[in-house]
Design a binder for these strands. Structure first.
Length: 604
DNA sequence: CTCACATAAG
């Protein structure tokens, strides 16, 4: 504990941040004030917290219970002893509890600045934080996205000797996890004398948030080794990471264990199961779980809508949405992202426009950049670039890079180089380190055979120190993940795999496959380009799948980037020639390939 | 009066 303590204190000493003075925003003050029931005057020094307690409380539970249970509430005057006098220490105790309650209410109501300001005020009255004060404060600091505030509270709790309280330490782990500082969360956890399921779950979600789903899954196993049993929270969290790391087999085993422990009826567990199965391409299992759920919520329905859309079942997504509304469940902001995404992937332009309007008119949801990005994607794919631009021009929402990137994607379909160049400039201005515009531009130039421009973009990327995520594909066999890069000879069975790729190429050529060298990005001679295509990572993974996956089972291949068009055509044909079902999930959606056809309808 | 979960395109 000491090492971390010294470091934190030293940092705090050196930088002397004053983050605890973060004041409530005007809106927070307004929303708090609106809720005050009567025109009681400002609280005096004797009962400083009462007004804030009342505010915070009334925010969450607007009216009647406030007066109804006032006589039993902890902020009523402290009970007097037999002689009718109240000791100073008892009064201080009541004021501390009142402040704690107020801080907790504010934190829960989303008034994070207010919570921190109350703490500041409380200290002004000579009251010290205890083990009840700190967790909601840490939570507020984390949700305000303020690492300095979190570090200051960390320093404070060390000085106050509160670090050994399990709840306080858990809140600290969670705060670092929420702030996407998994290493700091881990350091705190490692120094704790004992950990419970909350500690581990906090770290696990922190890793998941940072995108390290493999590490999250390892933490789940570590928890078991530490002698801590998972509960429904931990199960829901780890299932999400199983989905994130495409570990379907592990997801199934967690499902089985959760069922044995009786966690299946929990809404969050059902929701994460539906999502996990859908995201790993096992739609049938997602449906089975969904049908068996005792209750469903917006998240459940949204997971189903998105899952079907990702698996190329956009029309079914719309049917599910109809059922959702019919069941009385209200769609939210995220539901509409999924719904518009479904329309976009199924090419349902009219339905997409209608749902966009319905979102605003029927549900009063203001469209965000996310919705605009989906609409741009939808209109762009359908060749309505002009309409997409019109829509953006008319919008009053502040648009961000996601929208410009969606438009860039539309340019990819329509090969509109000039517009793409302008958009790339806009994205660069917002985030110079984003590799997406470079890759998009390079692909566009490449398809236009403008090799000079391709080289220029590559040089630009290099000079700016930006690297594109290398493409890779993997396939799971008997619980082991086999990973491949382009022209990768690193696998123990590489020779066999490359022979299989050559066999694949020969057999599909016999069926009429012609390589589409436009997809090759290097400005090489045609033969070289063809060769590079033939050994893309997805083809190596498929070849290995043909060798290692039992004939009756589908071959499930995952790719971190979007599948290349030539590989898409080739693998479709491989599925037909070899009589196999191949499920290829790329960065964008699933491709269920069978009998020479793909669930995406060649539209992705 | 305190801590952990599930849905999101590119």
């Amino acid at each position: 504990m000491l090492a971390t303590a010294c470091r934190i204190l030293a940092t705090h000493q050196r930088t002397r941040p004053t983050p605890l003075r973060i004041l409530p925003t005007a809106e927070e003050d307004a929303s708090a004030t609106v809720c005050i029931r009567s025109g009681t005057g400002a609280s005096d020094g004797a009962a400083p917290a009462q007004e804030d307690v009342r505010r915070a409380r009334s925010i969450e539970t607007p009216s009647p219970c406030l007066t109804a249970d006032a006589h039993v509430s902890p902020w009523s005057p402290p009970p007097s002893d037999s002689t009718g006098t109240t000791t100073t220490t008892r009064r201080r105790r009541w004021r501390l509890v009142s402040y704690n309650a107020a801080i907790s209410r504010c934190s829960r109501a989303g008034l994070y600045r207010r919570a921190l300001a109350l703490f500041h005020e409380m200290r002004g009255h000579g009251l010290r934080a205890d083990e009840y004060t700190l967790p909601p404060l840490l939570n507020s600091a984390a949700l305000l996205r303020s690492p300095p505030a979190a570090r200051a509270l960390h320093a404070l709790l060390l000085r106050a000797g509160l670090a050994s309280h399990l709840h306080v330490a858990n809140a600290l782990v969670d705060a670092y996890a929420k702030l996407a500082r998994p290493a700091a969360a881990r350091a705190v956890l490692d120094e704790m004398p004992r950990r419970d399921v909350v500690t581990w779950t906090s770290l696990l979600t922190g890793l998941a948030r940072a995108g390290d789903h493999g590490a999250a899954v390892r933490v789940y196993h570590e928890m078991a080794a530490d002698g801590v049993d998972p509960d429904e929270f931990a199960v829901a969290a780890v299932l999400s990471s199983c989905a994130g790391s495409t570990m379907l087999d592990l997801g199934r085993s967690v499902h089985a264990a959760a069922a044995r422990r009786g966690f299946e009826p929990f809404l969050s567990v059902g929701n994460s199961l539906v999502s996990m199965y859908a995201k790993t391409g096992a739609l049938r299992d997602a449906r089975t779980v969904f049908d068996a759920m005792p209750a469903r919520c917006t998240i459940t329905w949204t997971a189903m809508i998105v899952g079907h859309a990702q698996n190329g079942r956009g029309r079914q997504s719309l049917d599910i949405y109809t059922d959702m509304v019919r069941s009385g469940c209200r769609p939210d902001y995220v539901t509409f992202i999924g719904l518009l995404f479904a329309c976009s992937h199924a090419g349902l332009v009219d339905a997409g426009r209608a749902h966009f309007r319905s979102m605003v008119n029927d549900y009063g949801i203001a469209p965000g950049p996310d919705h605009y990005a989906c609409m741009v994607d939808l209109l762009g794919r359908a060749g309505r670039l002009e309409e997409a631009m019109d829509m953006l021009n008319r919008s009053s929402t502040e648009l961000d890079a996601t929208v410009w990137k969606a438009l860039l994607g539309a340019c990819r379909v329509h090969r509109n180089v000039e517009l793409a160049e302008r958009l790339a400039e806009m994205v660069w201005r917002l985030d110079p380190t984003d590799a997406v515009p470079y890759v998009m531009l390079s692909n566009l130039y490449s398809r236009a055979r403008r090799w000079g421009d391709v080289a220029r973009i590559r040089a630009l990327m290099k000079s700016r120190g930006i690297s594109k995520e290398p493409g890779c594909s993997w396939v799971g066999v008997n619980g082991v993940t086999h990973l491949f890069h382009v022209e990768d000879h690193g696998h123990p069975r590489a020779a066999e795999i490359f022979r299989k790729v050559e066999e694949m190429t020969e057999r599909i050529r016999a069926e009429g496959y012609v390589p589409d060298t436009d997809w090759a990005l290097q400005d090489e001679a045609p033969e070289g380009r063809e060769k590079a295509l033939a050994y893309h990572s997805e083809r190596l993974a498929v070849a290995f799948g043909l060798l290692a996956v039992p004939v009756a089972a589908p071959i499930r291949v995952f790719k971190n980037l979007r599948v290349c068009g030539d590989c898409h055509a080739a693998i479709k044909m491989v599925a037909k020639v070899y009589g196999r079902e191949i499920i290829l999930r790329d960065a964008n959606c699933f491709h269920h390939m069978k009998d020479g056809a793909c669930s995406c309808g060649d539209y992705w």
